[in-house]
């Protein structure tokens, strides 16, 4: 998963982004434009309703951080079954950017969707422990999310 900004001077200051291949995420088959970067509030998320190649829809939570990097994970919170991840608090654990579920407060890594703190809870039946993560980047001031 990559996190790339449209301002080269900032992206060169960052550590090299983790590559898509390292995460084992399916290769992006389709990039979808979501919104303008300035429609997102820094350090907060927003929900987006996206269409996959097969015509089905998927709800994605998109986050803009202070350094204007953008990240995307599934909007469905597996521990409550509600579509709320975009409304969680963004933060960090160590160097890792995170988001906390607004319902039962599990903490997930924004880069990988991995659940870092489950708070002793288990997900709803049929849902995974971790979040699906999506590639996200800003092109010419527009946030794009990559779907498999």
């Amino acid at each position: 998963m990559s996190a790339v900004t449209d301002t080269p001077t900032i992206s060169t200051d960052m550590e090299a982004p983790v590559s898509v291949a390292d995460q084992g995420t399916a290769p992006v088959s389709r990039w979808v434009a979501v919104c303008r970067l300035d429609a997102l509030v820094p350090e907060r998320g927003a929900a987006a309703l996206l269409e996959r190649g097969d015509g089905s829809t998927v709800q994605v939570a998109v986050y803009r951080l202070l350094d204007d990097t953008v990240w995307a994970v599934q909007q469905l919170d597996p521990y409550s079954g509600a579509n709320v991840m975009s409304r969680g608090i963004v933060g960090s654990r160590g160097e890792e950017p995170t988001v906390a579920s607004p319902i039962y407060k599990q903490v997930f890594a924004l880069a990988t969707g991995a659940c870092l703190e489950s708070g002793g809870k288990t997900p709803k039946p049929g849902l995974g422990v971790h979040l699906e993560s999506f590639a996200a980047e800003v092109r010419n001031g527009v946030v794009h999310v990559g779907l498999a």
């Binding site: 509030v41 820094p42 350090e43 907060r44 919170d77 409550s80 079954g81 509600a82 579509n83 709320v84 409304r87 969680g88 608090i89 963004v90 607004p102 319902i103």
Partner: peptide, 18 residues
């Protein structure tokens, strides 16, 4: 705005279905 829990952020109380 970025500091607030979802309840304060939406000025309403989140329920189990969001």
């Amino acid at each position: 705005a970025a500091l607030q829990d979802t309840n304060d952020h939406m000025l309403a109380n989140m329920q189990k279905d969001g």
